[in-house]
Each structure stands twice: as structure tokens, then as C-alpha cells.
Design a protein around this nucleic acid. Structure first.
Lengths: 265, 265
DNA sequence: GAGTGGTCTAGACCACTAA
DNA sequence: TAGTGGTCTAGACCACTCA
């Protein structure tokens, strides 16, 4: 449940008393503020699975005692992790490991919205699941060696019966050993929830490159449109803890009655 | 330079001493934490032009004294405003009003990146500038009355001599009175910088809807492609202080050698 | 009522910048 | 050297949740 090591907290020399402590950069190694060190330790705990998605992490007071720092310092570390969507604070209850099994998480990575009406979960049809050798481009983006095993998934998502998204995915074979078409078909809910629960890999961040292109024959057929129909193409690389790439996804979106929503701030 | 009123700070009853104060919700009106009130006051100062973009705002100690709260409370307010890109903290120097005249701001709203190489400022060619009555759709999105005066701008942006972006913009006529083609042509740098410096309207947030569509005859000509070429279409509404919509922009992006970059987190 | 996160204070020292 | 933001502490009280 919890077993964080308590070693590398680097107080300055003679850390004690009231307004003492603080990190002491400039002396020799690469120092960082205490709260950043705490943040790194908590992240390591998340990565190591000390606390699973949805579970509560120790309270601020508990962590402060464990790390021998003030509650305010722990608080600042947790604040940043919550801002990065790794943790979720709930007043009166505790701080919880974020999970993709939440309503609020469902649309964090699915940005395609209906032009009118409220968004809802699409129907999901698995077209193909197979293991293959990673092509050079896939290997490069996933930080694998060319030829390493990857799981390939192809699916179509429909809104109100209308095929709208055609997606291909490549996942590192080592991380998704038991992944089969059956598992995907019988699983209800967002795919990232499956990855998190069944394979212990939690996506926390993604980078997308978006283009417009004309549908080729295959895409046209799956989406029920004419070849050449303009489609939005989103190429996504997803990362888990430690900025490790664990998914490449290429989505083709039919934007006749939907749009990709993006808020710049 | 600075003249914030100091009225509506709502301490709880008998605010004083060490660990006292704190807001006291539940009594009657809609209370909010002190730091949120400070944040609102600072935002009002920004909106009122007490401090112009690029200028330094009063120090944390100064503001704490002025508002009769602790430095930590002011600090939390400024932290949030800095996270929202309204302010910019610089250690040892002060806290400054964010401006579009900064390298780091140039690509906050321009997400089109070259597939290879580093991004750089495009060449800018103004096609048309005119005043017109707001069409119903434009009026709706800009929160104007249908028929109100708007400034219409059409331009093409080129990277390395290749036309890549065709943009149309609609701006409220009242806010951009002296805006002419000449002003736009002679101005170097990002357009939001011009809006900020010359018209006192600073964009702080935007919402985009992105689609794929085929180039019509006009777009094809301006971008030097065949009609029907798939283009990325970004419809943007920009907001200034107080979530007031002040720009509608419709951009058509040629994504043959560029992509729209988006990071999900 | 106990435990949790949320707010606020007061004060200390540090790192950085510029005169 | 003075002034700024950045970090850290210790302690108080509040709001919320749940047994």
C-alpha cells in the first residue's frame, strides 16, 4: 500500500528550527527545491504502484511526517501533481490517484465533439488486432528497436450509428502481453481505462499532430464516405510516468457533424 | 500607474491576530476565499489599464500592505494569474503584465508547426480590410447585435515563400476604430501585438473548433492548390478580460508540410 | 468527533537583479 | 546594498466528509 523510501531529502546544511532549511543551490550537485524533491518521490511512488489508480494516497500530514518536512511543502508538491492531472484532491476525503475510470477523464483525450448537442460515448467496433514487428517509424516514435514486437489495433467508433472515427494503434508488445481482440471487445468503457486496469499502464500525457487529408479507399469504406473526402488526421503519441512513450495512435476523423475542440490559454 | 481601490476585501468577522481571518462562507452572501478576491481586484486593475502590458505591477509586499492581507495570500492570487498567462513572474525583478510582444507568446496562438525544422514567423500579406455589418453568425459568436459594425480582415501567411494559411477575421468595429489596411501592412510582428498596443485590447484566451474540408475555388487560388485539396479549418473565438469575445477568426491551413501541434495533458 | 484538504498568517532565509 | 520573487516553516482556523 505504501512504502516510500525516505532517503534523498536534501535539506540544506543544518536544517532545523523555524525559518531554516530551504535547499542550498550553488554548492555543488544539482539541487532542487524541497517540494520538487517531494514531488519526484510521490511520482516514483505512483510509478512503482505503491498506490493504484483510484486509491487514496497518504494524507498531507502523514507525508509531511514521513519526509520530515512541513505540511506546506508537501502541499505545494501535491498541488503541482494535481495540476498535472496525476492526483485528484477531494476536500474532506483525501488525495487520490487519478484514473481514467471517471466521467471527467473520458473526454480529456477524446476531443471530437458533436457540432450540436452534448458529447457522449461512441460505439466501438474492433476491426483487427494482431502482433507484428514494429515498422521503423513506429519504433522511432515509441522509442523501440525496429522489429520489436508491437500490438496493432484497428477500430471504428460510431456516434448515433454513424461511423466517425477510424483509428489505428501501436502498443509496445512487452507492456501489453495478454491483449487480444476478445479482451477489447468485451471491455466496456474507454480504452485507456482498460490499459490502466488490466495492463498497469496509465497514460498521463499526449502529444498530437493534426493534419487534413483525403480519405483513401480503405478509410472511405470504413467511414462510409467517398474516397477523397477531407478527413482530419490526428497522430498521437501518449506517455506514461517518466515521459515514456507507450502508445502511437493515428486517428481519422470525419468532421461533417463533429469538430475537434481545442482551448488555447 | 496604480490606483486600485481597497474596498471589498471581505475578511471574516474580527479579522486580526495570527491565525485568524480566513473567509467565512455560509453566513449569507456569496463568499469566496481572500486570495480569489485579491485575484479579482488585480484582474480589474489589468482590465482598467492601471498597469499596461509589459509593465511591472506593484510588489507582493506592496500589494499585501495595500489590501491588508499577508504576502502569502497575495502570492497565491498572483500564482494563479501567472498560471493563466495574465502575469509573468521574474525572480529578482518583479511581476509583469503579460504581453504579446514576447518571443514566448508568439506561438501560443499559432499552433501550425513545420513538419521538420524550427518554427519561425511567417510572411504576411493583407488581402482585404473593410468595415461591414455583422452577419448573424458573426454577431452571435462575438456577442454583438446583428448588423453592428465589424472590421473584416483577410490575409495570407507564407512560410519560406509558400502560401500556407488563409485567414479571415471579424472584429467589433467599436473596439478597432482606426484599423486600416495601412496600419496592418506597416506593422511588423504578431497581429495580437498590434491589437494590444494600438487598440488596447489584449487577447488572453481562445477557443477553437477544428475541421477538415476541401478547398473552394477562392481558397485554392490564394493557397496555390487545386480546388478540393483537403485543408484544416480552424474557427477561433478569442476573449479578453472578463471572458468578453473580441475576435472571430477562420483560418484555412495547408497541411502538406505543416501540422497543427496540440499537447494534451 | 475525527480526519481530510483549504485558507490565512507571520516570519525567516535564499536566489536573483540592478543600481 | 536594496528590492524582488522563491522557498520553507509552524501554527491556526475553516469547510467538508463520514462513521
Amino acid at each position: 500500500m505504501n512504502s516510500l523510501p525516505t532517503p534523498p531529502i536534501l535539506h540544506g546544511p543544518a536544517a532545523s528550527g523555524s525559518g531554516a532549511a530551504a535547499s542550498t543551490p550553488g554548492t555543488s550537485p544539482t539541487f532542487s527545491p524541497l517540494y520538487q524533491q517531494i514531488k519526484a518521490l510521490i511520482t516514483q511512488g505512483l510509478q512503482a504502484g505503491d498506490w493504484k489508480p483510484g486509491e487514496m494516497i497518504p494524507s498531507e500530514v502523514e507525508l509531511a511526517g514521513r519526509f520530515k518536512v512541513s505540511q506546506g511543502t508537501v502541499r505545494k508538491a501535491i498541488d503541482e501533481l494535481a495540476a498535472e492531472n496525476l492526483l485528484l484532491r477531494r476536500q474532506g476525503k483525501g488525495t487520490f490517484v487519478a484514473t481514467h475510470h471517471e466521467a471527467r477523464a473520458h473526454f480529456r483525450f477524446l476531443r471530437l465533439m458533436p457540432d450540436e448537442g452534448v458529447p457522449h460515448q461512441p460505439d466501438n467496433k474492433i476491426i483487427e488486432v494482431k502482433r507484428m514487428r514494429a515498422p521503423a517509424e513506429v519504433a522511432r516514435l515509441l522509442d523501440l528497436k525496429s522489429g520489436d514486437s508491437v500490438v496493432y489495433i484497428k477500430r471504428v467508433m460510431s456516434f448515433d450509428g454513424t461511423p466517425t472515427i477510424l483509428e489505428e494503434m501501436w502498443l509496445p508488445g512487452l507492456l501489453f502481453k495478454g491483449l487480444t481482440a476478445e479482451r477489447l471487445v468485451e471491455y466496456k468503457g474507454p480504452m485507456y481505462g482498460l490499459f490502466e486496469s488490466e495492463f498497469g499502464t496509465r497514460m498521463i500525457r499526449a502529444s498530437e499532430k493534426i493534419r487534413a487529408l483525403g480519405a483513401d479507399a480503405g478509410a472511405a469504406q470504413f467511414l462510409g464516405v467517398e474516397p477523397g473526402t477531407p478527413l482530419l488526421c490526428a497522430e498521437r503519441v501518449s506517455f506514461t510516468y517518466g515521459d515514456k512513450a507507450v502508445e502511437l495512435r493515428r486517428g481519422l476523423y470525419l468532421t461533417a457533424h463533429h469538430h475537434y475542440q481545442n482551448d488555447l490559454s
